[in-house]
């Protein structure tokens, strides 16, 4: 079932600019020069119920703008957006009651009071019945391990602790859709892993549809089945992560440890061959030469002690992709 549909969404912003030259700042105070920036250019995509979608793109590509439009904060210039059969900016109150939004860089909790007080206020804001609220709160405190934090004022929490509370806060009202704007920004490795694990189980168990914008490719790899790539306000890729890899990182890297010292020798159909001490690495395209053929060929020439086949690093792949698409 299609939960979210965007078609031909366009959005422009006016950015004011200071004029160049002498007395520029002074002139700028009286004459305003603005430049129009096309933030979103005919963006169309659709997301089904229960999908966990990664939304990636370089800085300033339009990720946050799309999230803001989908959550009803901004009105697009043109185009159609229907979420849960509503137009977000036309039925704001009904729409936002069914979504949760986590901004990695902004807090939705009240700074000076204990976390529990913020949660209680959210209960009233979302009008959650008490039994449901207590049950949900208990569930979230257990899985997010925030039981001991509930009585601490938010300003005294560490970033990782706060982020766990933020996510719990955005799920209190059982939203059908959760938007996460860079949720893992600034978190340490342990917190990141815990957060991913939590999002995954929540998605499986409750079937919450999640849209995640991030710069951390490990997030995408660990969580997302579907990936959207945006650049210069246009959707450049919409599909499975494996397809994206097929397109931009088709190569595999075979690394082998050899027992004797060997002279470099040519490997047919290989993209790149290199020797580092006793390690041999061969980058190859499984489409051109299957792994078994390559291993067979290599074992004819040298003694292979140990061997692994790795996928190309996803970070590198994305960097390569951004470059190729000249983003």
């Amino acid at each position: 079932m299609e939960l979210i549909t965007l078609s031909n969404i366009c959005k422009t912003f006016k950015v004011s600019q200071r004029p160049q030259g002498r007395f520029a700042a002074l002139r700028g105070a009286f004459l305003r020069q603005t430049k129009t920036i096309q933030a979103l250019d005919n963006v169309s995509f659709s997301i089904n119920q229960g999908e966990l979608v990664g939304y990636i793109g370089p800085n300033g590509a339009g990720k946050s703008t799309t999230v803001k439009i989908m959550s009803g904060i901004l009105t697009p210039d043109s185009g159609i957006c229907r979420i849960l059969n509503r137009v977000p900016w036309q039925e704001r109150v009904k729409h936002v009651a069914n979504i949760g939004v986590v901004f990695g860089q902004r807090s939705q909790l009240w700074w000076d009071v204990p976390v529990k007080d913020s949660f209680d206020l959210l209960k009233d804001i979302y009008n959650i019945p008490l039994p449901e609220y207590s049950k949900r709160l208990q569930e979230l405190t257990e899985t997010m391990q925030i039981g001991s934090l509930l009585s601490t004022p938010v300003r005294q929490l560490s970033l990782g602790q706060r982020m766990r509370c933020e996510i719990a806060a955005s799920l209190l009202h059982n939203p059908q859709i959760l938007f996460l704007d860079e949720p893992t920004i600034g978190l340490d490795a342990v917190s990141k892993l815990a957060l991913r694990e939590f999002l995954k189980t929540e998605n499986k168990k409750k079937g919450i549809t999640m849209i995640l914008t991030t710069h951390d490719m490990a997030d995408i790899e660990a969580l997302c089945s579907k990936v959207l790539v945006i650049g210069h306000g246009k959707i450049l890729f919409d599909g499975e992560l494996s397809e994206l890899k097929q397109l931009y990182a088709p190569f595999r890297c075979l690394k082998a440890r050899v027992s004797q010292h060997i002279e470099p020798f040519p490997v047919p159909e290989a993209e790149q061959v290199s020797f580092h001490g006793d390690t041999l690495s061969v980058v190859f395209d499984p489409g051109k030469v299957p792994a078994h053929a390559l291993i067979e060929y290599l074992s004819h020439h040298i003694e292979l002690n140990d061997l692994v086949i790795e996928e190309q690093n996803i970070e590198a792949m994305v960097a390569h992709m951004y470059k190729e698409l000249s983003l």
């Binding site: 959550s71 904060i73 704001r92 936002v96 979504i99 901004f103 902004r106």
Partner: peptide, 12 residues
């Protein structure tokens, strides 16, 4: 500060 966004996200 852009915190007005947060108000727009609440159903009241």
């Amino acid at each position: 500060t852009g915190n007005f966004d947060r108000l727009l996200l609440r159903p009241c």
